[in-house]
């Protein structure tokens, strides 16, 4: 058997090499899916009174979805009556707080920062932490914590440790706003994937 290569093999390898080289020139190290909170219906400003979009829960191939609501603490108002924590439309209870929670999975934890003045509990800051074991990214809290009611600190984020990185992300196919797209991993993790 000859060790030499046929001319057609050389042509094919050169062709493949050139194409691969072209792609490598514009390649990124690693690409992940991420939600652009400025496009997502649930967090997009101006989208008030519309139905909460829960396609991230329904479409994701991961059982409990790889999408989670994330509270950006630096933007959180730490309100006593948080519109994302409480169902502010429910009846007011004895403690002066709404009687219902908004989250269907009870995934938001509320704890006061520092001492609470028992006479005036409203005049205190509260920290809201999302329990990611319970949250499935249904987006109700995201829709509630949005201007003008809230400050828009809660957004939906793909959790890269849960996401299986499907080539054909089912959520991206279903998303009405094309808010979930692929981003270079570094930008997506650091939150640089937001459109300006």
């Amino acid at each position: 058997m000859s060790k030499g290569f046929s001319r057609r093999q050389v042509v094919a390898v050169t062709g493949l090499g050139l194409t691969a080289g072209f792609l490598v020139k514009k390649a990124e190290g690693q690409v992940v899916w991420q939600i652009d909170s400025k496009s997502c219906v649930n967090s997009k400003l101006g989208e008030v009174g519309v139905k909460v979009c829960d396609l991230c829960v329904k479409e994701c191939v991961v059982t409990q979805s790889a999408v989670r609501a994330v509270n950006e603490f630096s933007k959180c108002g730490r309100c006593c009556v948080c519109p994302a924590y409480f169902n502010v439309k429910s009846a007011v209870g004895k403690d002066g707080l709404p009687s219902e929670k908004l989250c269907p999975r009870d995934a938001i934890l509320r704890k006061p920062i520092g001492e609470v003045d028992p006479n005036d509990p409203a005049n205190n800051f509260y920290e809201y932490v999302i329990d990611e074991a319970k949250c499935d990214g249904c987006g109700k809290c995201v829709m509630a914590c949005k201007e003008p009611a809230g400050l828009g600190s809660i957004v939906l984020r793909v959790r890269h440790d849960l996401c299986v990185n499907c080539n054909n992300c089912a959520i991206s196919q279903a998303c009405p706003k094309d808010a979930i797209t692929q981003w270079p991993a570094l930008k997506a993790v650091l939150g640089l994937s937001e459109t300006a």
């Binding site: 994330v70 603490f73 630096s74 932490v129 959790r159 440790d161 990185n165 650091l190």
Partner: peptide
């Protein structure tokens, strides 16, 4: 008070 870090899970 210290603002807690927002968890940013890394990809694979």
């Amino acid at each position: 008070y210290k603002t807690p870090d927002v968890q940013k899970p890394l990809p694979r």
